Simulated assay, not measured.
Amino acid sequence: MLLALTFTPAALAQVSDADRATARSLAVEGQEALERKDFAAALDRFSRADAIIHAPTLLLGVARAQVGVGQWIAAQESYSRILREGVPEKAPEQFFEAIAAAQRELDALAPRIPQVLISVSGPDTAAVTIDDAPVPRAALGVRRPVDPGDHVVRASAAGFAPIEVKVTLAEGASETVALQLKPVAPPPAVKPRPPAAPLPDQGAPAPGSGASSRTVLAIAALGLGGAGLAAGAVGGVLALGKHGDLSERCPGGRCDPSLKGEIDSYHAMGTLSTIGFAIGAAGVGAGAFLLLTAPRSPQRAGISITPVIGLGSAGAKGSF
């Protein structure tokens, strides 16, 4: 049986009793899995056993399990390894039988293995893969053995649109997959935009903006000042007239109580005049200061201000 002469005396000398027992148990489980066609379990057990003690009988079990799970290329290599390695002349008879079985099964498997020929049209730098495994450039354009089933062949290159083809290979089939790489269309040309005008210095106002705003404020202040001076002058004139009238009607500074309303009116006119002159003086002074200290600009080149004070009126006269 396969299990009776699994190990050679030379191989056994290199392992412990525990390892021998483990390998033997794995081989038994692998053979049982093969017989019930549980090829995945058989592959696992025989692979483990062969890793502990390498022998052609165990590797033969690995190859048979690989055929069962559809890994025909790997099985082909396992069979070939058994034939390459051979066995010593004094090896157990079962080892020679394993070699003979490997040769028969390899001869039967080879014509069943599908093949694919991959051709690529495009740059010489194209990268080609089959099921994400790289395909050497030397293998392009020639028959390449592959496992039966579904496969994805893909090609890509810089500056070209990648392309992939799905192919299903049956037992013994031979297919050709032609991939044509096409250049990626360049993006539409974008018309260059003219350079943007440099931004003005953030620390300084734009030319003319400071002068213009100060001029507007100055004119407003002068207008307010002129109105204040005018109100003060009018109030003063009316207060003077009321004072003269009351002086005549109040000899010695003594006024009849009936004149209280006119006395209050006189005081109100005096207060109005004082406030008006105060506002006028402040407005004219502020306006003049703003104009005199504003940056020069073409708009201010012809501006002049002249204070004007006359009978019953006061203010400022400007030319713009």
Results as ranks from 00 to 15, higher is better:
residue 85 E to Q: 14
residue 105 E to M: 08
residue 96 F to T: 04
residue 70 G to P: 01
residue 80 S to Y: 00
residue 82 I to Q: 03
residue 85 E to L: 10
residue 66 Q to L: 05
residue 105 E to C: 06
residue 107 D to M: 07
residue 92 P to Q: 12
residue 106 L to W: 02
residue 64 R to S: 01
residue 86 G to V: 08
residue 107 D to L: 09
residue 84 R to P: 11
residue 88 P to M: 06
residue 103 Q to Y: 08
residue 102 A to S: 06
residue 69 V to P: 00
residue 105 E to A: 10
residue 92 P to Y: 11
residue 94 Q to N: 11
residue 79 Y to H: 10
residue 81 R to W: 12
residue 74 A to Q: 15
residue 84 R to T: 09
residue 72 W to S: 01
residue 92 P to D: 11
residue 99 I to C: 11
residue 64 R to W: 00
residue 83 L to N: 06
residue 81 R to Q: 10
residue 89 E to C: 05
residue 89 E to V: 06
residue 91 A to R: 03
residue 72 W to E: 03
residue 89 E to D: 15
residue 82 I to D: 02
residue 95 F to Q: 03
residue 93 E to R: 12
residue 94 Q to H: 13
residue 101 A to K: 15
residue 94 Q to F: 12
residue 69 V to W: 02
residue 71 Q to F: 07
residue 65 A to L: 03
residue 86 G to K: 12
residue 79 Y to Q: 05
residue 89 E to Y: 09
residue 65 A to G: 05
residue 65 A to I: 01
residue 66 Q to V: 02
residue 80 S to V: 01
residue 68 G to F: 08
residue 91 A to M: 10
residue 74 A to S: 12
residue 97 E to K: 14
residue 74 A to G: 13
residue 98 A to I: 06
residue 67 V to M: 04
residue 89 E to P: 01
residue 93 E to G: 10
residue 63 A to F: 05
residue 103 Q to C: 05
residue 98 A to L: 12
residue 68 G to S: 05
residue 107 D to P: 11
residue 62 V to E: 01
residue 99 I to D: 04
